[in-house]
Design a binder for these strands. Structure first.
Lengths: 197, 197
DNA sequence: AGCATTAATTATCTTTTGTTAATTTTTAGA
DNA sequence: TCTAAAAATTAACAAAAGATAATTAATGCT
């Protein structure tokens, strides 16, 4: 279930945790590969797992009745991912999660992870930290919508996650920023142009 | 510190908790009144408390260099409030929190609440639930910026929180929705008009 | 490497929003 | 209740964004 290489890997990522705790948590985890373009969680799925992305990139999007896709979030290596609707509302997913690149993740049943997380103060604290980090990320995003213009939001994304900007097609980034691909293209032109801003 | 009335009140709000736990948590709490218009947390403050709003309404806003105020969040009775920058980033507040109505809150030092929250599984679980709820709220808001137009965002707010819409001046609601007061006024007119769609 | 597909950009036009300022309405205090 | 101050609305114009379609560029596959 868990080999030498994996253990070393998790130790490096979760520095503050005991080997024992890591082992207990990842013992039940299973590795799963998803080819670029394939679906990880489909609309309507009740995905009851917690996944850790070892490699690759996942995009969640909402499919509007008219066929338009609105990117809701992106996750990549060294991040956890789960069905938001399941974790937060105990509901089937309204979103489709698919791999934008060949992706490898470790999956653990949430029902199995829960008691383990509860049993160790360190793991509980880590879970708490993760929740806080997710909250921080989400609130930062709310702030960016309130305080920044679409152009400033794009510049912020380029500044903070240049790697992601390169790996994700602009049409997906656009809806993530709350604008259309056409508008993003104009913003990019505006920025690139040496003229007045 | 804690009278009969208070105990009954907390029991009614935190139904799932033991009286013992409630008592331990609120024993150190102090009641504080804030008159309408007064500041609760000022920019730069390192507010190290957790407050429970018994009555009233608090607005947090960012003061732009040019003097513009951008509403970041609203909190009202039966909700917890704290300095987001402190809780999440251990930093002084970038925002100003002030009372829009005469407000009464119970404050507890975060340093004192922390060990109490850690000591009881039920309280820890409750804290976890609160964090989850905050996360849900924040992510819903992100979604609303991505999936909805300003007009739809306003309609959603009216639908989900008609009470709050009535209690908060439109100029504050506007920036909360990521638009200007003038634009909100036009949206309201559009909605009110008996014309097309 | 060539070709079919998809993404990105550009163009055109419409709608919406931002900005500033004037005007009307509402609110709150004396 | 009256009045000064604040909020909301309206107006006028500029800037930006949405929608649709055409064109160009990039990509992916055999």
């Amino acid at each position: 279930m868990l080999n030498q290489e994996d253990i070393g890997f998790y130790l490096s990522v979760f520095k503050e945790l005991d080997l024992k705790d890591i082992y207990r948590l990842f013992y039940l985890a299973k590795t799963r590969g998803i080819a670029a373009g394939e679906i990880f969680i489909d609309e309507g799925d009740v995905y009851n797992k917690l996944a850790y992305i070892k490699k690759g990139l996942i995009r969640a999007y909402y499919l509007k009745p008219n066929g338009d896709e609105m990117t809701v979030l992106l996750r990549w290596e060294n991040q956890f991912i789960a069905s938001h609707d399941k974790i937060i509302y105990q509901q089937p997913s309204r979103f489709i999660y698919h791999a934008l690149e060949d992706t490898v993740l470790m999956e653990i049943d949430y029902d199995k992870a829960q008691p383990i997380l509860d049993s160790s103060p360190k793991l509980s604290a880590t879970r708490h930290d993760f929740l806080l980090r997710m909250l921080a990320e989400s609130m930062d995003r709310v702030e960016s919508f309130i305080l920044l213009s679409p152009e400033e939001r794009y510049l912020q994304l380029v500044h903070e996650k240049p790697d992601i900007v390169n790996r994700v097609p602009n049409k997906y980034l656009a809806t993530l920023l709350g604008i259309t691909p056409v508008s993003l293209s104009r913003i990019r032109k505006r920025i690139a142009s040496p003229r007045k801003h």
